[in-house]
Amino acid sequence: MSKHLVRRHSYVARVGHWLTVFSFFVVTLSGLAFFFPSLRWLTAIFGTPQLAQLLHPIFGIIMILGLCILFVKNVAHAILDKDDVPWFTNVIEILKGREHEVVEVGQYNAGQKMLFWTIIGLGAVLIVTGIIAWQPYFAPLFPVSVVRLCLVLHSLSAIALMLGIIVHAYMAFWYKGTIRGMIRGTVTRKWAALHHPRWLREIEKGEDAHSSRLSS
């Protein structure tokens, strides 16, 4: 690994992420058209409104497959622990852009961990409610009252997920140097030292052990 770069996301994790992004994008646009009928033109992402109705669930499943990859790749680092407490008590300072002054973050900060569980939870609700309400295949197997409840829960959790993803994308935009990590897989040591110093120390410890093994 180069002197000023460290690996942050594996190739598989990046493919999973962008697969999720792509399918989220088309599923969200068509879903918004179903939720706000005045935005019917958004169904054009799939060609016609009928095709949007047909393909929305298919791409929803693709999105969930992408999320499954992200879950497997990240769940071990997403467990909230006592080291996350200072992040919560200093959240105002963090929003002012002083995260690096008030907390020492590991691989992920508490906000990222919460967002992870929010996305996983909402994804689970979306896939279950979406399959139950899926016409004309699965919905006829369930009572109408169950399908109705699922459609409402589906739209509630979809709107919540969209808002969460807006926050997620903004954070990546706000902390410069983040997006390259998800594209090229590497981040600068400066970036890591600023936002994830505890994680960088662990990486460097591993590098030291590795190089000392090589030299001996």
């Binding site: 929003l95 002012k96 852009g97 995260e99 690096h100 706000w174 902390y175 410069k176 140097g177 600068t188 400066k190 970036w191 030292a193 600023l194 936002h195």
Partner: peptide
């Protein structure tokens, strides 16, 4: 708040 850019934090 503006961007948080590691390059500016040196």
């Amino acid at each position: 708040v503006g961007p948080i850019d590691p390059e500016e934090h040196d």
